[in-house]
Amino acid sequence: MIPFEYRTPKNIKEVHQELKQFGTEAKLVAGGTALVIMMKQRLVRPSCLVSLRSVRGLGGIAQKDGGLRIGGLTTHREVETSSLVRRQNPLLAETYRRVATIRVRNMATVGGGLAHADPNQDPPPTLIALGASVKVTSANGSRTVPLDGFFTDYYETVLKPDEIITEIFVPRLPPNSGGAFLKFLPRTADDYATVSAAAVLTLDKARKTFTDVRIALGSVGTTPIRAREAEAILRGQPVKAEALREAAEKAKQLVDPVSDFRGSAAYKREMAGVFVRRALEAALNSLPKKSKTKPSRKPLKRRKK
């Protein structure tokens, strides 16, 4: 690693000042799990690292407008283990649990992961399918960017050099919704996916028709890919296995994978179809069981010994 300045601002205002001073020469660092490797390999050579690690007010998970507000500095492990996330959005907790190993999840942050924008990451497809957005701020104010549209190319996003991700917002799903994230891992459990697929769907009251569907894939293009045309096949249609197969077939046409040691482009395209279908099936199966009567509040009686 080449030498660099290391700055430790204590609040957002100081971060903006550092970024103003160093401009594009500076890189923001939080967990460092991705950036430090890139710096070791000299793929990235910043003359200054601005650390967000001591910045106050960037962490924490809270309820907001019925959904979840997750601070940019929150670690993957915190999202995975948060009782609030697990209760309100188990798909989100489960997706973060699939990232690498606990050791990496203890360091890697939610905001840092999104800013890194590697198309092989797990959280982006799920966050896109959930309709999540990020709040970014610069010295000139803040703006909200939907994650669908946030990623522009390999390791590139719409973030400007003076902007930082301060929070992620994940809206609450309507009733009769379900979701799933599937990761195809033919090598090791901590690997990047060969193909990953997230599906989030909402059915009508009778659970006979798709009222909304969102599908996103990872590892099959230069960015996570939202399969809009596959979604369109299902929206408004009756819930039938044939429709799922048709949507999966469409998804195969929307991906643009490259051949590498995780599989050939042709194989990944085929698997994209398989995993979209399975993700849709799993999303349907994840719907909470319908009950006509309200569940009893009475605690279960303990069996006497």
């Binding site: 460092g32 799990t33 490797i37 690690r53 690498a100 190993t101 050791r103 360091m107 901590d190």
Partner: peptide, 25 residues
């Protein structure tokens, strides 16, 4: 590169890869 775990240490009780963490962290 943070994969093998040989360099595991605990930071505030949580395991991290000391090969991916800068000393200043």
């Amino acid at each position: 590169v943070g994969v093998c775990g040989a360099c595991t240490v605990l930071m505030d009780g949580e395991m991290v890869s000391s090969c991916l963490a800068l000393a200043v962290f």
